[in-house]
Simulated assay, not measured.
Amino acid sequence: MEELLIQMAKGLVEDPSAVEVSVDAPDEEGTVVYHLHVAEGDMGRVIGKQGRIAKAMRTVMRAAASRVEQKVAVEID
Score class of each variant (00 low, 15 high):
60 V>A: 10
46 V>G: 07
51 G>V: 03
4 L>G: 02
77 D>R: 14
42 D>K: 10
38 V>I: 12
1 M>Q: 11
36 L>V: 09
34 Y>I: 01
56 A>C: 09
65 A>R: 03
33 V>A: 12
67 R>K: 14
54 A>R: 03
22 S>G: 07
17 S>A: 15
7 Q>F: 13
24 D>Y: 00
17 S>F: 09
66 S>A: 14
69 E>A: 09
62 R>F: 00
36 L>P: 08
27 D>S: 08
40 E>D: 15
42 D>L: 11
35 H>E: 09
65 A>Q: 00
39 A>C: 01
12 L>G: 05
19 V>M: 08
64 A>F: 06
33 V>E: 12
71 K>R: 15
8 M>V: 13
23 V>N: 07
21 V>Q: 03
53 I>N: 03
57 M>K: 02
17 S>D: 15
68 V>A: 09
76 I>S: 01
10 K>E: 14
41 G>M: 05
15 D>Q: 14
56 A>P: 06
65 A>H: 06
72 V>Y: 00
74 V>A: 01
4 L>F: 14
57 M>T: 08
59 T>H: 04
33 V>K: 12
28 E>W: 02
28 E>H: 12
33 V>C: 13
43 M>N: 00
69 E>L: 06
14 E>G: 09
22 S>F: 10
38 V>K: 03
47 I>S: 05
9 A>N: 08
